[in-house]
Design a binder for these strands. Structure first.
Lengths: 228, 228
DNA sequence: GTATGATTCAAACATACATTTGAATCGGAG
DNA sequence: CTCCGATTCAAATGTATGTTTGAATCATAC
């Protein structure tokens, strides 16, 4: 009944090749022909196993992203459990729980590229809904956790800063086109550990930064005045 | 001699339509047929005026980015002049000089989208060299300026943090797929002024954050020990 | 061995694409 | 009015694409 094992597991071979080529050339740039040739399978296998190219993209993304997000939420659960036991709340563990699973997955895949890049660079029609579905819960939970640590903060400003965290993270995870280090003329320790440490320090400091500059306060005050 | 004015200025119409469609659908997703139809010009006009689709992309990018980078460098020059006159050095003006011209250009174009997004999301073959050519000088100068303000900092760490600045900025400039604000359940003031202010505060704090966490220091110390 | 359902395969199909071509049209200079 | 270079235009070219098809092959259960 369960026709379990094909010898070379065509499905996985397709997913691997698709992942590599989608990242390299983009969704539209990676043709099914190039893709199936690289995977060593027949052209029609994609239609048979996935239905079509669009569904293949969805499968590629889900395979990598869902485990990462599960691990993120697992670690966040652990953190919140410790909070309930009275341990002090800090930003750094939250940021680590958000960042490290993604970097770990990236490292595990050999090629140091994260599939999440695709989500934020591919202008595919159905991408927005896919993002919401894949990352919605994670975004909500982590945003809430950060918000709880920084209780005093302006919610609107915090939402913006949370976006900045996401932006910096994505830029490092994908980084298809990062400004090359040689350009700024220094040798950079861009090992995973170094990047992670610097990201956590940088982002925690940014999130904690005191509210606003004078300029804005003045603007707000003026606006208030003119309303009277 | 200078056959100056065509009536409807085909070139500009093509550039406008191309800019919009490249951003919406990506380079490959925007066909010359859709593009020229949207512009109200003949299909062959692209070949005549630009040579081909690749050269059109280059023209689209250069038209928007070069003025922005000129303005950035103009403002940085002004800052460094003030430094030479003995005024105190701060990060915030540098960040403002880096960010504001891009946001201003974005606003001026009606549609609140920045063309720079394309540079960092489009997997076009010649994109890396284009980025280096367009942003090389800017990156070098701003990195140096930040480095001069934070004289004490570890150059490698600073290079990483400078990348984070770029990442957060790009995420906000383009943001084709930002996690939607409604998802985190708050109404966000994402006006240009609010975003800019928060970005400057966030990024300045991140850049200034004290070097590293205990964990790393310990690791480094251990490594040193084991070398003896 | 043979029947059965899952999988693979080569080929064909219908579009969609960027580019090229050569004639038609335009706008001003002589 | 005429001419000429610049520009526009409709059409054709050749290639690449995602998908579909129907036969061939395989692995297994009986």
């Amino acid at each position: 009944m369960t026709q379990a094992a094909q010898q070379p597991d065509t499905r996985a071979r397709i997913l691997d090749a698709a992942e590599r080529l989608f990242l390299e050339k983009g969704f539209r740039g990676a043709s099914l022909r190039a893709l199936t040739t690289a995977a060593g399978v027949n052209l029609a296998a994609v239609g048979y196993h996935f239905g079509g190219k669009d569904e293949l993209l969805r499968a590629v993304l889900e395979r990598r992203i869902e485990p990462v997000n599960r691990e993120r939420l697992r670690r966040l659960d652990a953190i919140e459990t410790r909070w309930r036991r009275g341990e002090p709340r800090a930003l750094e563990p939250i940021l680590a729980a958000l960042l490290e699973p993604a970097f770990a997955a990236m490292r595990a895949d050999g090629e140091a590229r994260d599939i999440a890049t695709l989500l934020y660079s591919e202008p595919h029609e159905r991408m927005p809904e896919l993002i919401e579905r894949l990352f919605g819960e994670c975004a909500l939970r982590f945003h809430a956790a950060v918000s709880r640590v920084l209780g005093r903060a302006d919610p609107s400003a915090l939402a913006l800063r949370f976006q900045m965290v996401i932006g910096a993270m994505i830029h490092f995870l994908g980084g298809r086109h990062r400004i090359s280090p040689k350009l700024v003329g220094v040798t950079v320790d861009d090992s995973e550990r170094a990047v992670l440490d610097e990201l956590v320090v940088f982002l925690a400091a940014g999130l904690r930064a005191p509210a606003r500059r004078r300029k804005v306060v003045r603007r707000a005050a003026r606006a208030q005045e003119s309303l009277r």
